[in-house]
Write a protein that binds this DNA or RNA. Structure first.
Lengths: 323, 323
DNA sequence: TTGTAAGCGTTATCAT
DNA sequence: ATGATAACGCTTACAA
């Protein structure tokens, strides 16, 4: 590993002092134009780049944004990377990606790691409330994405609306028996669905909430869950695309055609929805990440609660129920 | 942003000198056990983490692995992130992800950025040969993935074999008219296919190489390309999954059923293949990333050329041709 | 306009 | 076993 050049080296080559090189690099206007030109030429021909550790150490700014994501097996989170790398890069920032795998302790480790690296901001799709409190206590520059958490700066898709829109759409297609497959009873999407049902004075059966592991949804499990249903729904809403994929395979296995016999609507609108032609509730992930970077970089420290509108992407997996 | 604690602070609290704290942190055995315990307790209760910029500056090791990927719109590359983050994390390393978007200049910028950050290694899915030469000249600790480039340390899937395996499989299903959709004439996958054809003394028509932009494949373009065919093939091999997805939609639009009327085999085996039940040639991405990290961390500086075996994942998109 | 010098928080080399 | 002290490469007063 050849040793990198330093400002001292450049200074010697240019016959100036090291701070002058620093001034040139940082565009300080007090530098004599002639000197600037000479130094810049040498910098260019030598391919010099200032050492960022030294810079960080001195200036307390690393030009790094840390991103802690919930689950990189899920394409929804994976896709975020593309957008956040882009938005950060355009502003001269580099991203560090960390996967918490939904694990509280790992998440804490990642937070400490990022702090130690003097990152200029943290974007987090959170696992654990305590860890967020910890972040807040350190008054780190951070923003929560993907979840709505009162008292914290958040950028999230309104999943209550998402649930309502999903149910509303299926209802408009004449579906009254709608099941939701997802992680937990207090899921906000489920809440939205239930709210819509009660608005319409319809009953949402208990068994229509089908509880499954969202990070590790597997086919077999899903199959027995479906077996247990007394009143088989005419439409399914899934909490994410991976579940939708499994559900599709399972229904096919049972000889049920989508959308002829049964309708499916998923959340997240990843490439899976595109591939399978599944109607899906899209999070505006690009906007989410752009706004997140924006928030961090403007240094706007006031708490924000930015709710983004979910978008219904209609595809062929839902049809009008005739029978 | 609360100021982070330093070793000096801990030292004062523990009534020792700052270097002693450093010794404790780094597990230096020359520290008195009693002192060690006292210091460790304080470190723990204060939640102290040593500043990594200072560490990097002094030790010339950042504990960061830089990863430059070709195209984050392609799920093949996106999926790599999951594995590389995992493999790096397990070894105490953090990853910086950079997207070159297939752009030579951006790739160069990323390389400079990583160098300036004193990364301990670079994993690169390369765009440009000159940039690689630059890397090598600096004798950076790096490894090329996804491409076979003589004289450079590489870890790649043997795509020549991949092409042969693909053609062989379709041939075993009685297909003799096989088209390949991909980026360029000298594509190694295509070479493998052609080699298989000549082994079998079959003719591979010129028009069966269908040239398309792999990073930005779009439907319309594909449609006209198919229109131009004189001898319509009975099977398609696509250079990646995104093309396979577009092809699937296009063929469906033409009322052609997969696999009844036509067979499809793709490269990459991303979630798209899973979703669409497309037979695909899988790169062992997990192994690729694990080996890459391994190579970088063992500091084994000899050139390696590690070829990984492609794996044929059979699904329902290919059937025996009867007519 | 430019150079000198201090300091960021570590690690490593000395003494002691 | 531990404490001074220098050094890593940069930014930022301050002096000239």
């Amino acid at each position: 590993m050849k040793k990198n050049l330093t400002m001292k080296d450049i200074a010697k080559l240019a016959g100036v002092s090291q701070p002058t090189v620093s001034r040139v690099v940082n565009g300080n206007p007090t530098v004599d134009p002639e000197v600037r030109e000479r130094v810049e030429k040498i910098i260019l021909q030598q391919g010099f780049k200032p050492n960022s550790s030294a810079k960080t150490l001195r200036s307390n700014s690393s030009k790094i944004i840390g991103v802690i994501l919930f689950d990189l097996s899920n394409y929804y989170y994976l896709e975020m990377i593309k957008y956040v790398e882009k938005a950060a890069g355009e502003n001269g920032y580099t991203v560090i990606i960390l996967n918490s795998q939904g694990d509280k302790n790992l998440e804490k480790e990642h937070i400490l790691n990022l702090q130690a690296r003097n990152v200029d901001g943290i974007i987090i799709a959170p696992v654990d409330r305590e860890n967020l409190e910890f972040l807040k206590k350190q008054s780190e520059n951070f923003v929560v994405i993907d979840s709505e958490i009162p008292q914290y700066p958040c950028i999230f898709t309104s999943l209550l609306d998402g649930g309502k829109i999903a149910a509303q759409y299926l209802y408009s297609l004449n579906h009254k028996k709608i099941a939701f497959i997802g992680a937990d009873k207090k899921n906000i999407k489920l809440l939205g669905i239930k709210e819509f049902f009660s608005e319409k004075k319809m009953k949402f059966l208990n068994e229509w909430f089908i509880e499954t592991d969202t990070t590790n949804s597997n086919l077999q499990n899903l199959s027995t869950l479906l077996d247990n249903l007394n009143e088989f729904p005419t439409a399914f809403i899934t909490s994410n695309d991976v579940i939708a994929l499994n559900l599709t395979k399972e229904l096919e296995k049972r000889g049920l055609n989508i959308p002829k016999n049964i309708s499916i609507l998923s959340f997240d609108d990843t490439i899976i929805s595109t591939a399978l032609n599944i109607t899906s509730i899209k999070h505006p992930v690009d906007i989410m990440m752009t706004k997140a970077i924006d928030y961090l970089l403007t240094g706007y420290k006031m708490p924000i609660q930015k709710s983004l509108n979910p978008i219904l992407i209609k595809r062929e997996s839902c049809t009008f129920l005739t029978k």
